[in-house]
């Protein structure tokens, strides 16, 4: 059991690591970097929303903390990029624990939790947009400095590998979640938190750890986003777009599965790009497609593409399909 589940994970990472060296175009490389950044944000969402059953509508809050930490620490305080990255992730986890502490102490779940996370992200957006510290509405620009110490590379394929390494860490963390006692507690409280509590699971602490881990992964995604675009403002960092894309990718790919968020991000952004290309740039059409896919997914394949593929594969080989409970 132990090592076998890692095989598809390793295969996926290996394939993604090889693709940039097959002579793909610059714009395709950019799309791949963006896909991996969104995949990382979605992996963060998946820890809390997929395994813990707590759907957040405000993961932008953590993405934004990471992005702003990365930008401000470097541009304002001249910190080393790697150090800024570590601090950004830590601050994201801390902010997650803070929101989690307040919400879980009040026993918020379901739509109430979704709404309160959304409100926190909005408050962060408005504050970042008006505070001097963040550069206000003008945003913060990072300096263009090539070199390993600055986490900026002349060859963008290297940056892709860095992002991919983080996605691999996210995959490993999720895989660990599936096989650890902590992950079992988390799934138990998703299915029935009262029963889990009655069996002796410390529900509050488990949820708190889950949101911290979830926020850390999404903050890492924000850090890398800022580093990639070298610019941050409130509507990018704390805008609802990233909350939505993280949630969509995880759910469409398969919430509560290891590979789901990665597959979801690739499929969604791939289709989005395709729509943009085919429609000749009519605004909003790509997001419209996202919305349609989400509704179709919830209606016909509530466990996501991963489960759908697995079911098709197993059925073809003549085995009975795994039910949602077993998977």
């Amino acid at each position: 059991m132990t090592g076998r589940g890692l095989l598809p994970v390793a295969a996926a990472v290996a394939v993604l690591a090889v693709i940039p060296f097959l002579g793909i175009s610059g714009s395709l490389l950019n799309l791949m970097i963006f896909m991996m950044i969104i995949a990382l944000a979605a992996q963060g969402w998946n820890v809390l929303g997929g395994y813990g059953g707590l759907s957040s509508f405000g993961h932008a809050a953590f993405f934004g903390v990471g992005a702003y930490a990365m930008a401000i620490l470097q541009a304002r305080y001249g910190l080393n990029a790697w150090l800024a990255l570590v601090i950004g992730i830590a601050l994201g986890a801390l902010f997650g624990a803070f929101i989690g502490f307040l919400s879980f102490r009040s026993g918020l779940k379901g739509s109430y939790f979704a709404l309160v996370t959304l409100a926190f992200a909005e408050v962060a957006r408005i504050l970042a947009n008006s505070a001097n510290f963040t550069g206000g509405a003008a945003g913060t620009i990072l300096n263009l400095q090539s070199g390993v110490a600055f986490l900026q590379f002349a060859d963008r394929r290297v940056f892709l590998l860095v992002v991919l390494a983080f996605v691999a860490i996210g995959l490993l963390a999720t895989w660990w979640l599936e096989h650890s006692r902590f992950g079992a507690y988390l799934v138990a409280l998703r299915e029935n938190d009262q029963a889990a509590q009655a069996l002796g699971v410390d529900v509050f602490t488990v949820k708190l750890k889950a949101i911290a881990l979830s926020a850390a992964l999404t903050a890492a995604s924000g850090c890398l986003y800022a580093q990639d675009y070298l610019f941050v403002d409130a509507n990018i960092a704390f805008g609802s777009w990233i909350s939505i894309e993280a949630l969509f990718a995880a759910i469409v790919g398969g919430a509560g599965t290891v590979l789901g968020p990665l597959i979801g991000a690739i499929v969604l952004l791939g289709l989005g790009e395709l729509t943009k290309g085919l429609s000749g740039g009519i605004p909003g059409l790509d997001l419209l497609v996202f919305g349609v896919i989400l509704v179709l997914c919830v209606a016909f394949s509530p466990n996501g593409l991963v489960t759908l593929l697995r079911r098709l594969g197993i059925e073809r080989r003549g085995f009975p399909a795994k039910t949602a409970k077993e998977a």
């Binding site: 759907s55 509508f57 379901g110 739509s111 979704a114 939505i244 949630l247 759910i251 009519i282 605004p283 909003g284 059409l285 997001l287 419209l288 996202f290 919305g291 349609v292 989400l294 509704v295 919830v298 209606a299 509530p302």
Partner: peptide, 19 residues
């Protein structure tokens, strides 16, 4: 699922209007 479907619908409507 209801939460997600209505979220999906809001994205669809908003972007259909945008288009």
């Amino acid at each position: 699922s209801i939460l997600l479907v209505t979220l999906g619908l809001s994205i669809i409507i908003e972007n259909a209007l945008l288009a």
